[in-house]
Nucleic acid binder design. Structure first.
Lengths: 228, 228
DNA sequence: GACCTTGCTGGACACTCGTCAAGATCGGGG
DNA sequence: CCCCGATCTTGACGAGTGTCCAGCAAGGTC
């Protein structure tokens, strides 16, 4: 292999890194805009305005608007899907895990509300826009697994089995979280202590719901374990 | 009062009825379009194309696009918010109510999927669009009450108390229903029996979850009763 | 029959959107 | 030093949007 060839390869690799860096930078700007405006109202110009580039550069790094959006969503998911893993690893008692989980949910709501607004928006859009479906489905499955790591560990620490399967556990927790997000957004515009009450309610609900799905006595068949 | 005045009043009332009729007609066309295309992709022209009128008529009966959308949502809610009331009234045993509730949820998913897609879309949009917030919040509360009528009656028939309050019960059931809707939409494009499996899973989950929120023994304090 | 209100049409408007391409800029290799 | 390729800007294009409005048809009133 000639030295020029090696150098060219090295340069190409460096450029690919540079390109990835730019794409990530762009994705972060896009996520900021998407989180504020939502999917429907985020134009490429608005996204570019929130970055240090002009609107044309998007088509230099991404073929499509969809490609940008999907890249953004995957980029975001890769960052936050292990948010609760430390809790699972560090927990020693069931009650401790439950407390830490509820607190982390509150923190998520407080600090990452725009991102989760965006997530629910995109998930809703995926019901109409076929192109989003694949990425959304994959992320939803990943989130389900994330929640299941918490729930199954919680059951393990309790020395009991979970009555609910991964899907059911994710479904109910996602439901109460989404409700809290909705209330948190509506409250933050009015009064500030309303937001705190929403956070407290969320923690209470999680503290109340999770113990329920632990099997108590001789298990009656309960149909919560999905077959698939 | 002169006969001309009475006649004028009568005519005005008749016209108001006519206007309401037209608005409802328009709302139904709009709901059809909104259910298929979602909020973001539904233009006034597309809505008018699905009706027997031209696109200009919208501004004759509605001031705004928002006024039309919100009118549509309220119109829809008024139709379907008592869907489960018959179950509650007719139920004689807890198990019977549970079966009927699960079956009705399946029916809802099968026959009204577009409307519920739209609902979740609009609820997500309301997190970004202030104008939608009030209507969405009101409907969400109404749905919570609707679910609570079922759950509290279920607890009553069981002779036990519900551990979960209205918000927690609605949150978890809404979560599993939304998950089923998501899966149902994704499945209906692929295989038909996948849709049936989604329906079966939904029924299983409801059958598994609802008994859990019934208080078992001497109640430990569980924090699921929201304070507000 | 003339007239006027009401209901509705269809085109025009101002604007935003995604996309693209021609040209400016810049930095490293010959 | 110049050139060349990568990178970025800028402006334009066509399609699509909500909104508005001049005008037509119909049906009741004088």
């Amino acid at each position: 292999m000639t030295s020029t060839a090696t150098r060219r390869v090295a340069r190409t690799v460096r450029q690919i890194d540079k390109v990835d860096e730019r794409r990530n930078h762009l994705a972060e700007s896009a996520l900021k805009t998407l989180g504020e405006l939502g999917y429907a109202r985020s134009s490429l110009r608005a996204i570019a305005n929130n970055s240090e580039f002009s609107h044309g550069v998007v088509h230099y790094y991404f073929h499509d608007k969809f490609e940008l959006i999907i890249y953004c969503v995957r980029y975001y998911k890769a960052r936050c899907v292990h948010r609760y893993d430390a809790l699972v690893a560090d927990a020693t008692t069931a009650e401790g895990l439950l407390d830490a989980f509820a607190a982390k949910l509150q923190e998520t709501l407080r600090e990452e509300a725009p991102m989760h607004r965006l997530w629910y928006d995109l998930r809703a859009q995926s019901m109409f826009e076929e192109s989003l479906r694949e990425a959304v489905t994959m992320i939803d499955r990943t989130l389900e697994e994330m929640i299941w790591r918490v729930v199954s560990r919680y059951a393990e620490l309790s020395g009991r089995e979970s009555v609910a399967g991964p899907a059911a556990a994710y479904g109910m927790l996602d439901g109460v979280f989404q409700q809290a997000l909705l209330g948190y957004g509506a409250a933050s515009n009015d009064r500030d202590d309303d937001g705190e009450r929403v956070l407290a309610t969320l923690a209470d609900q999680v503290h109340g719901l999770l113990p329920l799905i632990l099997r108590t006595d001789p298990p009656p068949s309960s149909g919560l374990h999905e077959t698939a």
